[in-house]
Amino acid sequence: MKSPRTTQIVIIAGIVLLVGFLFSQDIKGLVKPKDDATVGMPQEAATPGVSLAEASATAKNLISNAAAKEFTSLESAFQKAQGEEKANQAKVLAQKWDDLEQAIPSALYLEEVAKEQSSLQNWVKAGDRFLKAFDNTQDSLVKPAMLQKANQAFTKAVAIDSTDLDAKTGMGITVVNGMGAPMEGIAMLLDVVKKDPKNFKANMNLGLFAIKSGQFDKAITRFEDLIKNIKATPDAYFYLATAYENLGKNQEAIDAYLQSKKLAANPTLSGFIDKKVAELKK
């Protein structure tokens, strides 16, 4: 029989594997055909980074030759453009890469947009996309670079409007994940929820961080409230099930897992949940 500690390790490992397509994604993003995989490239003196050229080249290896040629043409136009036109070309590239679930080059192009057209909205959008890239990649060099890029984008956004809850939420997420003292990030997210109790992203992250820190009772309360009063999503049910499982409440975990499966209607997630449910019924 597994010890509670062993069970917790197994479940958290499962979260790490699934987080790329569950965490803060719409249903269309629950499954990605291939994981992003890029090689870290030195971009700034003491800071590991990912160059736009390298990210694009790596992503092109994951798509069809016809699509890759289209991107090469669009990138050529981007390189030749100036000012507003350059920003517009970057927007097109960012959207097209996002449509293919290639968050890393998409985020880097959104950063280019924000540099050309600095605004609260543009920096928040870039920060959110960098967080998506951070969640999706398991590359040990790229992951911290994406988190740092996200933090930098949200720092720019907060500098423009320190009261904006989206910017503050993004900043809190990056701080908890390693860009500062974790409790400082938690405080930011709690402040967001205090001002906007139905803020989905802040509540979702507080619940997830409660699981990561082993506070499963708090996680259950957070996710149950989120599902009942804010929005019932596949990932909310999945994490609720995870918390229940860690407390040995197998039937509650099974019910929540099956709700996640039903809402997601995703073959990859369904297969994982079917195996999980079978284990819990033993």
Results as ranks from 00 to 15, higher is better:
115 K>F: 09
173 I>N: 00
43 Q>A: 15
87 A>I: 10
155 T>P: 03
139 D>K: 13
137 T>P: 15
72 T>L: 08
89 Q>A: 04
162 S>I: 09
48 P>H: 11
73 S>L: 14
44 E>S: 13
102 Q>H: 07
77 A>R: 07
108 L>N: 04
137 T>E: 15
164 D>E: 03
108 L>I: 11
55 A>T: 00
52 L>H: 00
157 A>Q: 02
131 L>C: 06
79 Q>W: 02
57 A>T: 14
114 A>H: 03
71 F>W: 05
58 T>A: 14
177 N>G: 06
162 S>N: 12
149 K>G: 13
78 F>G: 02
162 S>D: 09
101 E>D: 12
158 V>I: 15
108 L>K: 15
183 M>F: 07
163 T>F: 01
82 Q>F: 00
162 S>A: 10
141 L>M: 10
132 K>G: 01
163 T>D: 06
150 A>W: 05
186 I>R: 01
70 E>I: 08
56 S>T: 14
159 A>P: 09
88 N>F: 15
187 A>C: 06
113 V>Q: 04
55 A>S: 11
115 K>M: 14
52 L>F: 01
137 T>M: 12
67 A>N: 05
50 V>S: 04
127 G>P: 03
71 F>Q: 05
144 P>W: 05
173 I>P: 01
73 S>F: 14
76 S>D: 05
91 K>G: 07
117 Q>I: 11
164 D>H: 07
60 K>I: 07
47 T>M: 11
133 A>Y: 01
138 Q>F: 10
118 S>H: 01
168 K>I: 12
94 A>R: 08
100 L>Y: 10
186 I>K: 08
140 S>I: 14
185 G>F: 02
98 D>F: 03
160 I>W: 10
87 A>M: 13
190 L>R: 14
92 V>F: 05
142 V>P: 03
108 L>T: 05
191 D>M: 11
141 L>G: 08
183 M>Q: 14
177 N>P: 00
188 M>S: 01
123 W>R: 09
73 S>M: 15
74 L>W: 04
79 Q>T: 13
187 A>S: 10
73 S>E: 10
